[in-house]
């Protein structure tokens, strides 16, 4: 049976357990795609520990629990900004064929011809932290502009301007619109 957590009652530990069951793998995956997996597992656990501690403050009237969790995770990732950038640079330096054969996404279609993991990683490394947060919350979490603004605690216009700058940087780095 699929348990759909009732987000209005997160204060109940059992309900919070359902939230954990529904979102843990997703949050861990999001962090793991930005940082090394060993750090990601620790931060995913930390995300839910923080959420559990702050569950009384969660206001379902302001948004869903999923973006709220992404927000906590993104803030934790921010403490490892240098590690994230180092990881992208390492991916960019690695031999392309080996990198692309070695991970689970190697068979996923490439929407734009000529864009490799290495070039993409290099481009992500050149984004500012704020720009990268916006881009990856959209790309990995599928959040809307409004949700991203809520998650990051910034205005919608800030999200739009960060996106605009990120698009320009990615286009310059990759040579195509993505």
């Amino acid at each position: 049976m699929i348990v759909v957590p009732d987000e209005s009652a997160l204060t109940d530990p059992e309900r919070f357990g359902a939230v954990f069951d529904s979102h843990y793998a997703e949050i861990r995956r999001y962090i793991g795609r930005r940082l090394d997996l060993d750090i990601a597992e620790d931060l995913a656990a930390e995300t839910f520990l923080i959420a559990y501690r702050r569950r009384h403050r969660f206001d379902p009237g302001r948004g869903e629990v999923r973006p709220w969790l992404y927000g906590i995770a993104t803030k934790l990732i921010g403490r490892h900004r240098r590690a994230e950038v180092r990881r992208y640079r390492a991916l960019a330096r690695a031999a392309q064929p080996d990198v692309e054969r070695g991970h689970d996404q190697r068979v996923v279609d490439r929407v734009a011809a000529g864009i490799t993991v290495g070039r993409l990683a290099g481009a992500l490394a050149r984004l500012s932290r704020g720009e990268r947060d916006v881009v990856l919350l959209i790309a990995y979490a599928g959040l809307s502009y409004l949700q991203v603004a809520e998650v990051l605690g910034v205005a919608g216009g800030t999200v739009a301007s960060r996106l605009s700058r990120a698009r320009a940087k990615l286009r310059d780095a990759l040579g195509v619109e993505i």
Binding site: Y24, H103, Q105, V108, I115, A139, Y140, L163, R167
Partner: peptide
Amino acid sequence: MSEFTVIDEMMPDVPPPNPGEV
């Protein structure tokens, strides 16, 4: 915002957590 789909599709993914970890 569909322009960022390529990032999701191409960047390395992570293996799922094992039951013991969860």
